[in-house]
Design a protein around this nucleic acid. Structure first.
Length: 304
DNA sequence: AACCAGGTCGTGA
DNA sequence: TCACGACATGGT
């Protein structure tokens, strides 16, 4: 039964940076009986659950996927964690675009852009507007517990923690009333969630359509959803549709980029996004994530 | 007690 | 186009 899948010597990977850089919300850290250099998490994603641990290895880290078969790693988690990608190349390209990012990348090394489920990413980032990350996680958990398909923790013997349901499908959210959705404490975003679920469930917007469009057209189609603006659309493109050229600009990125590139002068998000596209090109999404972590860690530009 | 949060919408110049 | 308040909820 308890078969673990292990991979050794993974470079450019650090679980806390991967999960806690604000790109995903349906996870929890397991802090019990952990040794130095070890990090353990529970994750609910891709309609599955995962209990995973990182340990130091001779070169890079070792990942232990608890109670996981090889086929499941090959077909699900390898892609989810973006493990086929060579981040050495990506880091070099970014540093070439701006040498000042070398230190920032070094300090925040081990970030991976996850390949998450499209619909979950869409709803999660609709929720994210005007909320802090811990609260986003709470609403995602509430929404799942109330409307998502339950899984039996004792049967699965995998999760040690607080989750008991998958993220709701488009169908489940479409069939829920706005009041039911509001019970998740999503507040004024409830009609937004409903509209997104409706457009996806009725096939007005599909992952297939979006993946066949160029990034700009896909962004515009996403923005026809009520409650999806430029920033949320870019997050969905980057984290849920594999568009690594997308560069979401939120309050943090605005502060960080003004600090780095605009001499602290107030600059429109549209300018910041366009300049980043020019500067980082197809690596803009990766650059954004290193910058976001850096800004959060050092509270760049925050005045209090 | 105001003010802010991985924003977006509606309104009015 | 652009500025600005409103919007639920919770934390400081």
């Amino acid at each position: 039964m308890n078969k673990n899948f292990v991979i050794d010597n993974i470079k450019d990977f650090h679980l806390p940076h991967v999960l806690e850089c604000g790109q995903c919300f349906h996870y929890a850290r397991v802090d019990m009986n952990i040794n130095e250099g070890e990090y353990e998490y529970d994750i609910v994603a891709k309609g599955r659950t995962l209990h995973i641990k990182e340990e130091p290895d001779t070169e890079g880290v070792r990942l232990i996927f608890y109670n996981t078969e090889k086929w499941e790693y090959d077909s699900v988690w390898k892609d989810y964690f973006d493990l086929d990608r060579d981040y050495g190349v990506i880091k070099n390209e970014i540093i070439e675009s701006d040498p000042r990012l070398e230190e920032i990348i070094y300090v925040n090394n081990g970030i991976r852009i996850l390949n998450q489920d499209f619909f979950e990413t869409l709803i999660s980032f609709i929720i994210s507007q005007n909320k802090q990350i811990p609260q986003i996680k709470q609403v995602v958990r509430n929404l799942s517990a109330e409307l998502g398909t339950k899984f039996d923790v004792t049967m699965i013997d995998r999760l040690s923690s607080e989750f008991d349901a998958f993220f709701p499908t488009a169908e489940q959210l479409y069939n829920a009333s706005e009041d039911d959705i509001r019970k998740s404490k999503c507040g004024f975003r409830a009609p937004y969630i409903k509209d997104a679920a409706t457009k996806v469930y009725t096939g007005q917007i599909t992952e297939q359509m979006l993946s066949e469009m160029n990034t700009q057209d896909a962004r515009e189609l996403l923005m026809t959803i009520h409650g999806v603006g430029e920033k949320v659309a870019n997050c969905v493109l980057l984290f849920g549709l594999g568009r690594r050229d997308a560069f979401p600009v939120d309050v943090w990125m605005k502060r960080i980029c003004e600090y780095l590139y605009y001499d602290e002068v107030d600059t429109p998000k549209s300018i910041i996004e366009a300049d980043a596209a020019k500067r980082f090109g197809k690596y803009a999404g990766y650059a954004q994530q290193y910058l976001f972590m850096y800004g959060q860690k050092h509270k760049i530009g925050i005045k209090r």
